[in-house]
Structures are given as structure tokens and as C-alpha cells.
């Protein structure tokens, strides 16, 4: 990474300086725009975020009041997605790394199907969830349907990442375990998973972030209702849909939408930075 810079310590040539200027301008432009996005939203909405906003029910379709039921629904949908997606993708990744050769036909089929699944538009999963989970399985428009739909979306991301994590395990661990007579199961539960624990946490948080970021797939699956869900079979509105609905459907909802956007960005940044923290720890 970047050892080009370390090799050439001599002065840069004329073209180099011009190119450097252009590249820096692109870097700065993108950086400043992202900074401005966060800054604009925070400045607009920070005045509305207080304890009452977090703990009250929304009033007048969200123009006043708080977002407590929305936070609860968001956490429910996320938990269902993670609880369903993580064990399945762990199992998939373990099977691929421990039981298959990376060059076998089955491995190829796995990569291809995960790649297709990862590039399918999220709205397609929304329609799939609304048809399959809500109608065929009879879960209706509910938190459960939303969570399961998100789980299907997150599985390819997590399975790919877990596979990469398991392939990074030093060969000595594997050889050592099998030389001592460990069977596959013992190796998996006592060596593979504990040794990759921090990276597994990173991947789980990465998947959670992806699920938190989703809007389109949840529109038709977990619904719009801003009331407090009483069970996972009730519909519930997640934060991203609350922002969408306030800014598009409710006149004068912009400022309250910025307050919700601050919450969403905050939650997202916390999840991502904890994830980055664990991955850094694993590297050193």
C-alpha cells in the first residue's frame, strides 16, 4: 500500500506536480462534500434531538413528538436479520473453506450465486419478501417479514466476508490441530471460530450496518405504521423509512427528518467504528 511514494523520494517532475494537483482536487472535493452532507444534516436537526425525542411517541405523523416506537422497530428488525443471517452465513463459509476445494465446481457455484445475490437491486428483495414471507408464509406486513428479507440480503455479504476471514487462518493452526488428531468438528469449534473471533465480530457489525442502511426492501415488508409494535408479527417503521416518509410525504417534515437522520447517522457510525476497532485489533 502506497510504497510507490516511499521508493521515489526525489523531487517530483513537472507533470507529476500537475497530476498531483488534479488528484488532490478530486480528493478534497469528495472529502468536503461528504463533510458537508453530515454537517448540513447535523446543523439542521440537532436542535430537535433531546431526551423527549428519543422516548416519546410521534404525533401528527411525525411532525411533532419523538421516535421511540421507530427506534424499537428498527432494533427488532435488525436483531431478526442478524440472528438469522449470521449463523447461516457462518455455516456456509465454514462448509466452503473446510469441506470444499477453492477450485471445485461447487465453490464456483457458491461464489457466482453469492455475487449475483449481492448485486441484485434491494427493491427486488423487497418484492420477494412481500410475496414469499408476507403472502406464501403468511407473516403479513410485519417486523418478522422485514427482518427475514434483510437477512436474505445480508447473507451473501457476510458469507463472502466470513470465507475471507477463515482463509486467512494461518495454515499452522489447521495442520497442528489435525496432526494432534482433532476431527473437523473439534477444529471448527475450538480453533477456527475462537481464532477468528474478532474478525467475526467485525463482519457481524458490517452486516448490521448494511441492514441498518436499507430502505427500499423494507417499504413493502415491514411497513409504514409508526405505532409501537407489540410483537414481531406487527408492522413497524424503521428509521430510514421514517426519514423517507417525513421528507417526501409530510409537508414541513424536513426538520424532524433531519433529527431522525442524525440518529441514523449516529447509530451507523457507532456500529461501523466498533467494527473498524475490532478489525484493527485483529491485525496487530
Amino acid at each position: 500500500m502506497g510504497y510507490g511514494a516511499r521508493i521515489t523520494r526525489e523531487r517530483m517532475s513537472g507533470t507529476d506536480i500537475i497530476v498531483y494537483g488534479i488528484l488532490l482536487a478530486a480528493l478534497a472535493l469528495v472529502f468536503l462534500t461528504y463533510g458537508k452532507i453530515v454537517f448540513d444534516i447535523v446543523m439542521k436537526g440537532i436542535g430537535f434531538v433531546d431526551w423527549g425525542y428519543l422516548t416519546e411517541d410521534p404525533r401528527m405523523s411525525g411532525r411533532a413528538g419523538g421516535v421511540f416506537p421507530i427506534i424499537v422497530s428498527t432494533l427488532w428488525v435488525l436483531s431478526i436479520a442478524v440472528v438469522v443471517a449470521v449463523p447461516i452465513s457462518l455455516a456456509i463459509a465454514i462448509f466452503v473453506t473446510e469441506y470444499l476445494s477453492p477450485f471445485s465446481t461447487l465453490s464456483r457455484i457458491f461464489r457466482l450465486s453469492m455475487l449475483i445475490l449481492a448485486s441484485v437491486p434491494s427493491i427486488a428483495f423487497g418484492l420477494f419478501g412481500a410475496t414469499f414471507f408476507a403472502q406464501y408464509l403468511g407473516f403479513g406486513t410485519s417486523i418478522l417479514t422485514g427482518g427475514l428479507t434483510l437477512a436474505i440480503m445480508v447473507i451473501p455479504i457476510c458469507a463472502f466476508a466470513f470465507e475471507e476471514v477463515f482463509r486467512l487462518l494461518p495454515t499452522g493452526y489447521r495442520n497442528g490441530a489435525f496432526a494432534l488428531g482433532a476431527r473437523k468438528a473439534r477444529f471448527i469449534f475450538f480453533i477456527l471460530i475462537p481464532a477468528s473471533a474478532t474478525d467475526i465480530i467485525t463482519v457481524v457489525l458490517l452486516g448490521t450496518g448494511r441492514a441498518l442502511a436499507e430502505t427500499a426492501a423494507l417499504l413493502f415488508t415491514s411497513g409504514y405504521s409508526d405505532r409501537m409494535p407489540e410483537s414481531i408479527f406487527d408492522p413497524g417503521r424503521v428509521l430510514s423509512i421514517h426519514i423517507y416518509d417525513l421528507s417526501m410525504g409530510i409537508p414541513g417534515g424536513d426538520r424532524m427528518a433531519s433529527a431522525s437522520a442524525i440518529l441514523l447517522i449516529g447509530l451507523f457510525l457507532i456500529i461501523s467504528s466498533v467494527g473498524i476497532f475490532f478489525s484493527r485489533k485483529a491485525k496487530t
Binding site: K36, K44, M248, D254, L264
Partner: peptide, 20 residues
């Protein structure tokens, strides 16, 4: 920064686009 922005909820981009 790019890593975080790559996974940023898209509704945030949409909302900023709509209001700014």
C-alpha cells in the same frame, strides 16, 4: 472515510440531495 461512506444509508444521500 471511504469505507464508512460506502455503507452509509442511502436515504441520507437522498435526504441531503432533496434538501440541499
Amino acid at each position: 472515510i471511504l469505507f464508512v461512506m460506502a455503507a452509509m444509508p442511502t436515504v441520507i444521500f437522498g435526504f441531503w440531495g432533496l434538501t440541499e
